[in-house]
């Protein structure tokens, strides 16, 4: 009987009960201690005491924030008469605004040319030019690829730059770094313990399916990237598929294994080289085109994999930027670093 009772303490039900009861705090402590031990590579408990203070301050900060919420007494504040009237007016104005907007947009839609009408004003000489001369001038069987990576290549360079800048901004906002002497800051330990808490490691089922799926996803993504000028697809879609494979790998095998081939260095070098290659290649071809010079880039036979001049390397560059950006978004949102 007594054995049963002591056993009962460590049972899952009890842990769940504890979890509900203490609002994550009890389980958090356990995981934070474990993670601190691992990140600092400390074995003895005496060294742990030094960091107890840090953890206490972290916890203290959290309770302070929650207390501050209570102190302001949000519920009472939201229920004051002036506040209620204000929110009612706001809701009414929002609904009226939305309905007026939908009404006017629907009136516009009703006057627009019929859906799938070949004589609609959008189907004008620009479209005719792209379709009639696209294959001849760019060598790409896929007219959309020829359009976005040849006629409008400058626009696509801007898009890749927007992605890169977004990745940099998210990096600035969310990256948690170590101190200069290599010791982790308390946010890093908190992020690590959160990651441990919500993302359990070494899941057999996930790893088994990832071993089968990740190579197939990579192959498919690379195929879409390389066939951008021949079939639907291209750098953006292929890059997102490759990054989906990377994220699946990271999810199933953890940050340590993924960090062996993808670090901040990889991200910055791959993005930098792809973007600068794109910029230089397109500068060259725009310069030649504007001055009426022959660019010297063979267009090849339409339909072959090595054809259509610069479109294939540009697709690869765009795909690499997209894959790196999406992967780093995921890593930063999950743990604040690679």
């Amino acid at each position: 009987m007594s054995k049963r009772r002591s056993d009962w303490q460590s049972r899952p039900q009890n842990r769940v009960r504890q979890w509900f009861h203490n609002g994550f705090l009890a389980l958090d402590d356990e995981i934070i201690n474990q993670v601190t031990k691992e990140t600092l590579r400390m074995d003895s408990d005496s060294e742990m005491d030094k960091h107890q203070e840090m953890l206490d301050s972290h916890r203290h900060e959290r309770t302070l924030a929650l207390e501050r919420l209570d102190q302001y007494n949000i519920q009472a504040w939201a229920n004051t008469r002036g506040r209620k009237a204000l929110s009612r007016i706001y809701v009414t104005i929002s609904f009226v605004l939305a309905f007026v907007m939908i009404f006017f947009l629907l009136r516009t839609v009703a006057t627009m040319p019929r859906f799938s009408d070949p004589n609609a004003p959008t189907n004008n000489e620009v479209m005719a030019r792209y379709i009639e001369k696209g294959l001849e001038e760019t060598g790409a069987v896929n007219i959309v690829a020829g359009m976005i990576l040849d006629y409008r290549a400058f626009d696509t360079l801007g898009e890749s730059t927007v992605l890169f800048i977004a990745a940099s901004a998210v990096l600035i906002l969310l990256r948690i770094d170590r101190r200069k002497d290599g010791t982790p800051v308390q946010e890093l330990i908190a992020a690590e313990s959160d990651d441990r808490h919500y993302e359990p490691r070494s899941d057999r089922i996930l790893q088994g399916s990832a071993k089968v799926l990740v190579p197939i996803i990579f192959l498919f993504g690379i195929y879409i990237m390389l066939n951008g000028h021949l079939s639907p697809g291209g750098g953006f879609s292929g890059g997102s598929i490759v990054s989906a494979g990377l994220i699946l790998y990271l999810d199933s095998f953890g940050f340590e294994k993924a960090g062996k081939f993808f670090t901040y260095k990889t991200f910055s070098w791959v993005s930098f080289l792809s973007l600068s290659f794109y910029a230089i290649a397109k500068t060259y071809s725009f310069y030649c085109g504007a001055n009426g010079l022959p660019s010297g880039i063979p267009l090849g036979t339409p339909g072959a994999i090595l054809s259509s001049g610069l479109i294939l390397p540009l697709n690869i560059a765009v795909g690499l930027v997209v894959a790196c950006t999406m992967y780093i978004f995921y890593a930063l949102f999950r743990k604040g670093g690679l």
């Binding site: 070949p118 959008t122 479209m127 379709i131 009639e132 001369k133 294959l135 959309v144 079939s231």
Partner: peptide
Amino acid sequence: APIVVDGVTEVSAYINPIP
């Protein structure tokens, strides 16, 4: 869809690629 098949490059064969 605007992907050239059999070398047909007439406007009336494909949809608008710009959107």
